[in-house]
């Protein structure tokens, strides 16, 4: 590689794993991942709107400006296409930019840089240069933020060759997957989620706790039906699984995808082979979405094992309305997921 790419290397990470963990929020877990990676590798830097002085629109980057200074925690103007694209260029020069897009909705403004630039770099230039860029952004709905601010289009992005798309559903994975993204050689979107930022969980303190990309997790074991979800839909699915056990004696298994591209079809298929039934859940619009992809993969991998058609639950196919009652009606809430499960099981 030519001179500019030979920028300072990452420091060697300590060899031993420690087993200590601490209870913290999803937001704090992301912050911990950023701090650890910035301390480990000086090529890592953060940029985005309000990430510095304001400490992040959702306070993920609180304290980082004070710790790492304005060179590495860069406030940007409202120029998503510009600074995300700047991330692409800096990554091509061997830097490890982490670009925060305040919410997923504003990524649309920069979509050309994501899909037609970042995702294309490695293949289009014959594998001679990569783009180790991380884009972090929260998606989701449920706070009456209305049509332009309540979207989950990770499905579009997960359908783009050249990109990797991760979607942690709990604090431990938030830390582990963000670290995996930062250490990865390719452009990775880490999809965060507004309602989960405040969720708490045990997070390994080991700086080498990295969640592998392309590996789903069995978030809850069960035998009667498989619920497949990611991000906030996993949280809801877990809630539904508990209700099903209590009210109907149904044992539901929940597969948390964690990674949308690459997708761990194997774990999903193994679970469905075991339970013979699947309900796929997402926060986004299901037509042409993540659940559409899952349904296709499941019917192909598990055709002989299925006892019922694969069901899917997602956002009502409308731009999200403001009124609370309408918004609630549109969301893939626990009642709708539960109803889909019962229907798939033939319980009325």
């Amino acid at each position: 590689m030519s001179a500019p790419l030979a920028s300072p290397r990452a420091r060697q990470s300590p060899g031993r794993e420690s087993s200590a963990s601490q209870r913290m929020t999803y937001r704090e877990a992301l912050r911990l991942a950023l701090r650890e990676e910035m301390a480990r590798d000086e090529r890592v830097f953060l940029m985005g709107e309000e990430v510095g002085l304001f400490e992040g629109a959702y306070k993920v980057s609180a304290g980082l400006l004070a710790e790492f200074g304005p060179e590495r925690v860069r406030d940007t103007p409202i120029s998503e296409e510009g600074f995300l694209g700047a991330g692409v260029g800096a990554a091509m020069l061997g830097q490890r930019p982490v670009v925060e897009i305040m919410t997923l909705n504003f990524l649309l403004v920069a979509m050309d840089q994501v899909v037609n630039h970042a995702a294309k770099v490695r293949a289009m230039f014959g594998g001679k240069v990569g783009c180790p860029l991380v884009i972090r952004s929260p998606g989701g709905a449920g706070n009456q933020l209305t049509a332009q601010h309540s979207q989950s289009f990770e499905g579009w992005l997960a359908g783009t060759p050249g990109l990797k798309v991760l979607a942690p559903a709990n604090p431990a994975d938030a830390k582990g997957l963000l670290k995996a993204a930062i250490r990865d050689e390719d452009p990775v979107l880490v999809l965060e989620n507004l309602p989960i930022y405040k969720e708490k969980g045990d997070v390994p303190l080991d700086p080498e706790h990295v969640t592998p990309i392309g590996r789903a997790a069995i978030a809850r074991e069960g035998t009667d039906i498989t619920l497949v979800a990611h991000s906030f839909a996993t949280v809801r699915s877990l809630e539904v699984a508990e209700r099903l056990a209590e009210r109907h004696g149904v044992s539901a298994e929940v597969v948390d995808l964690r990674s949308l591209r690459p997708l761990d079809v194997q774990t999903v298929a193994e679970s469905v082979v075991k339970t013979s039934r699947a309900v796929c859940v997402e926060e986004g619009w299901p037509s042409y979405g993540v659940t559409a992809e899952l349904a296709a993969r499941i019917q192909s991998a598990c055709f002989d094992d299925l006892d019922a058609p694969v069901e899917r639950v997602g956002m009502a196919e409308v731009p999200l309305p403001y009124a609370k009652s309408l918004e609630l009606a549109a969301m893939p809430g626990v009642e709708r997921i539960e109803a889909a499960v019962l229907h798939t099981l033939g319980i009325s």
Partner: peptide
């Protein structure tokens, strides 16, 4: 449509 999709597309989607 798979079950449920109809309601989602046409916006009923409020129970079955």
């Amino acid at each position: 449509s798979p079950f449920g999709e109809q309601e989602l597309v046409f916006g009923g989607g409020l129970g079955r």
